[in-house]
């Protein structure tokens, strides 16, 4: 099932023995003359759902307006004196964190104005407008396989390649890393590198056979 990434590429994930039950979330940096800003994208309503789940939604000051057919929402958190600004479209949302309270919506609109935001069922794309002098970089995609592991996909050039040759698997070259923590538990991660992606898997249970099966077969591609 291909998915569109916020920088306009296509992410394909094949060979996973169990399906993803949720859509992909993305993080991408927008760099411009005025500095850098980190945008997150996810399914519409996801940020609110998560903060409700974490029990922090109740203390937020929530503001909402409408802008070019989309909703603009701000979650102002008095606890850390910061504001999460969300653009919520029909399928997905784009949000960023802005320090400070009473942040005017105009500030967020100014950041978004550099992009043509294209929201479709397979993903939301932030296309830099001509002359806006912004560019996107360091995109990463995250998802989870329920009860097995977390999955993080980076473009292959963005992360250093582990040393050595790795083990040949379906999705590229595989490295496994075990880290023993102070309480004696083992944190096991797997890194799969191929021509287009570096995929990092972090196991929930180190000796879960399903994790080994995922590491041996998952194939991620970015075009």
């Amino acid at each position: 099932m291909p998915a569109r990434t916020p920088d306009g590429r296509t992410l394909t994930v094949e060979g996973s023995p169990q399906p993803f039950t949720m859509g992909w979330s993305y993080m991408v940096w927008a760099r411009g003359d005025g500095g850098s800003l980190r945008f997150h994208t996810a399914a519409a309503g996801a940020r609110e759902l998560i903060s409700r789940h974490l029990g922090e939604y109740g203390r937020f000051t929530v503001r909402e307006v409408s802008w070019n057919g989309a909703r603009l929402v701000s979650h102002e958190d008095p606890e850390n004196g910061g504001t999460t600004m969300l653009w919520i479209g029909p399928h997905h949302e784009v949000y960023t964190f802005i320090p400070g309270v009473n942040v005017p919506f105009e500030a967020f609109m100014g950041h978004l104005a550099g992009f043509d935001i294209q929201d479709a069922p397979d993903g939301v794309v932030l296309a830099p407008r001509l002359g806006a002098r912004v560019r996107l970089g360091n995109m990463l995609a995250v998802n989870t396989l329920d009860g097995v592991c977390s999955v993080q996909v980076n473009p292959v050039g963005d992360l250093p390649r582990p040393g050595g040759t790795g083990k040949r698997v379906r999705g590229g070259a595989l490295w496994k890393l075990d880290e023993r923590r102070a309480d004696g538990r083992v944190l096991r991660s797997a890194i799969v590198v191929n021509e287009t992606t570096t995929t990092t898997l972090i196991a929930r249970e180190a000796d879960d056979p399903r994790f080994a099966a995922v590491a041996d077969s998952i194939t991620c591609g970015l075009n």
């Binding site: 307006v65 409408s66 802008w67 701000s74 005017p104 919506f105």
Partner: peptide
């Protein structure tokens, strides 16, 4: 206005004094 609802304040002679997006 950029976004709605917005509140715009006009002076008695009809000159715009300021405008603000009203979120709450």
């Amino acid at each position: 206005v950029g976004a709605t609802p917005s509140l715009v304040k006009y002076a008695p002679d009809g000159t715009e004094e300021w405008r603000r997006v009203v979120g709450s």
